[in-house]
Design a protein around this nucleic acid. Structure first.
Lengths: 199, 199, 199, 199
DNA sequence: CCGTAAACGAGACGGTACGTCCTGTCTTCTA
DNA sequence: TAGAAGACAGGACGTACCGTCTCGTTTACGG
């Protein structure tokens, strides 16, 4: 009985090819940043044909996004929902700061943003896969804090999310001040001085 | 009597050429965004040789920056320093929102950021000419508010600046939510609920 | 069975592309001469990308050379070796004169020489592909004439070749006098008055 | 009586400027050949403005031609007319060979020819100033030889001139064989074996 | 001895072409 | 069918010169 008609036919995609593309992209991004990042360069470094890249990702941005997703540890973020609010908050910023010590991450994120400025489809994708989920996690967390009486119920949740994530992206993209643990702590302290209810 | 060093020699730059480059760039940026913005295109539309552009601006980013500066109304911003703090704040956000209703401004700023991601020299320039001055104005304003007893002296000024400007840039670059007068008001209200001292 | 080393891999070059480049180059050269001959122009007229030209020919000169070779009829020249010496000689000059009535040929050859003056690599190529082979044919012919007792054995073959070919190139490149059948006949008559043995 | 109405008015041309242009051009030509020869480069090396060059010479070719003329020793050539024919002939070739040992001369002449291939006006000028006068000298010489009964009166003078000068230019422009004293002697010997009357 | 016209350096200007790089698509052969 | 190789049209890059122009500054002559 032939199960799914649209079943796999012909030669299956090679997982090693897939991985060596991601590896090469990762390395180029780490070493040379967005500037030196091209599909052509990735293909060459991976020992892979351009076709094999375009078969998998429709654009440079899509590859960058996968690269970003592949490196994220979803589990770590999921955990946050089960921590006390202030701890979750602190933890999120600390993890972000830690990740951004690796040039791969700064370069990848900057590349994603650069790409999104030029390509509306990419911008949509980026928002849907990266920005919105993060905000939703944040929103759920804040709402829980309000429900549990730890957070001032009069806050404008969207504005708070904009202020917190905004501060982080702002430093990341414009680079006027460093992103380090001091920053993470100061931001946490300031925000909680504002939104936490006195007990 | 201060004699001009390195006096003018040779044929002076043509102001009309200069302007028609800026005009053409402005229009292309307004119509086609970063995607359609190329030195070649600007030269063609301006009826000017590429040389005449490269003579004035070493890179696409430098041109974009001048385009941005030429369009900014410094006077409007200078006024802010003489307004009551909350009004200055409100006014700054309103003006920003208004400006960003014009696609030229969103496209220009997005282009500048995109360019800065790829070119460190451009990033430096952008910070020096755009980011830092704006922050310094904000810092002076906040400090005055503290000195005059209107603003809570325990705030971390840098973090407040990051939160406010960050929120604005965040929406501008990632586009997850609109930038409108509602946003300007909500952000003002929220921030002043936090930092304003009760009288 | 001799397996082909470095076998054909990837998409093969398109013969139509190749031909349309040669055609466009031919036409531009015929119409506008060396002056109006540019890679950019050829690409445009051929409806081909510049890359496709540079992939095949490393320089303008190399393209010109192929253009020249493609138009030469090797067979006609090969025949000369089987004719009586005076006839071969006469025939060669007549064919040359005839060819040079077509502006394509004068323009191509003048272009090749112009290019060779500026580019030593091109000069080498030109000598190897055009000058030397022609001289060798001439040398063989003269030697046969000597061996068969028709030509004075005391001549300096290189000098004779320089004088004959030189006269032709001299008129072609400097243009002080026309290249026509009268010239072909006069040159033949004069040279044979000198080198032919009286029977 | 006011002599020439179009008399000298305004600042006269600076002879030093003139000379430093020729010097710079000479040196660039000697060092870098036609390839590296540009009006811009000459102006820079001479410490002179491009205007000062274009004021004097309408084109690159015209400058090259003047450069050539300035370096020629007319006197030496004039003398030839008073020598016995064979000596004049020999002397002319020897002088040519000697001159061409200096890369300046080969480069200049090759440049002139290259320029003439691309620019018909230049070709006319070159013929009028260089080619024709040389041929006329040769023609007068040959005619004298015939009149004095030293040279075979049945020769076709134009063809002889083409053969002799042609051989020289041929080697110069195509470079398939060296131009040296051996060549000068062999060419003289061969030609006189042909055209000299036995006494 | 003074005004003026031309020469001069500097360099801007509109052009044309260069040769290179990359994009995203395509075509072919091999596995 | 996937995959490697690489051709292809197209677009832009930044550079080099071209020949012309416009400046401000000399400099010799002729009135």
């Amino acid at each position: 009985m032939p199960s799914s008609t649209s079943a796999k036919r012909g030669r299956p995609r090679d997982a090693a090819t897939h991985q060596s593309i991601l590896d090469a992209a990762n390395q180029i991004l780490s070493d040379a940043g967005y500037r030196g990042f091209s599909i052509e360069g990735v293909a060459a470094k991976a020992g892979v044909s351009k076709t094999s890249i375009y078969r998998r990702w429709p654009s440079k941005g899509a590859l960058l996004l996968d690269l970003y997703m592949a490196g994220m540890d979803g589990a770590a973020l999921a955990d946050l929902q089960h921590l006390p609010i202030r701890d979750a908050f602190q933890r999120y910023l600390s993890l972000s700061v830690k990740r951004l010590e690796n040039p791969f991450w700064t370069n990848t994120i900057q590349s994603l943003v650069a790409e999104a400025q030029a390509d509306p489809e990419m911008a949509d994708l980026f928002r849907a896969k990266v920005i919105v989920p993060r905000r939703e996690s944040g929103r759920i967390l804040l709402q829980r804090g309000i429900d549990e009486g730890q957070i001032d119920s009069s806050i404008d949740i969207d504005i708070v999310l904009d202020a917190v994530f905004g501060a982080l992206w702002y430093r990341l993209l414009l680079g006027h001040m460093p992103i380090d643990q001091r920053f993470a702590n100061a931001l946490t302290d300031q925000v909680f001085a504002w939104i936490e209810l006195e007990q």
